[in-house]
Design a protein around this nucleic acid. Sequence first.
DNA 1: ATAAAAAGTGTATTAAATCGCACTTTTCAA
DNA 2: TTGAAAAGTGCGATTTAATACACTTTTTAT
Lengths: 70, 70
Amino acid sequence: MHPDKLGQTIKNRREILAITQKDLAELSGMGLRTLKAIENGKSNPTLETLNKLIDILGMELSIDVRKPKF
Amino acid sequence: MHPDKLGQTIKNRREILAITQKDLAELSGMGLRTLKAIENGKSNPTLETLNKLIDILGMELSIDVRKPKF
DNA sequence: ATAAAAAGTGTATTAAATCGCACTTTTCAA
DNA sequence: TTGAAAAGTGCGATTTAATACACTTTTTAT
């Protein structure tokens, strides 16, 4: 999960929920500037910041062993 | 994914692979002190740090919509 | 076309993640 | 038992994520 892909994931989900960056930032209790940076893939967010976001977005973060492609 | 659970996930996986904290830190290109803090749930790591770790551990991070329990 | 809402940006400050060094504690095999 | 390897900790330095303010650009609805 690289910054660019993360940003798209967050942005896509936010748009599905039809809320603005400002509202998402406020609901998540984080700075608007920070959210903008994340969505634009220009940030290296902390786990805490990530958790705030995905919680409000109704998402979850998971870490699992990579499945081999063959 | 809270810091405590993350720490356990990392530690469990490392022990399955039978490598030391020192080796994992070096392979991941991160400070030993940082890895120790993460495993002990006393850290709020950045995405970049997380990526370094799970990459070496043969794991992957994913963010998906929460499935309802019913 | 245009006015308002939403999104993006430059700069500066603050809080905290990362890091190395030196040391202590715990684990574990001989 | 004991000695070495592994894990954990106090401290201080450096880097950078997170933040607010003020402003510009883009998007959207009328």
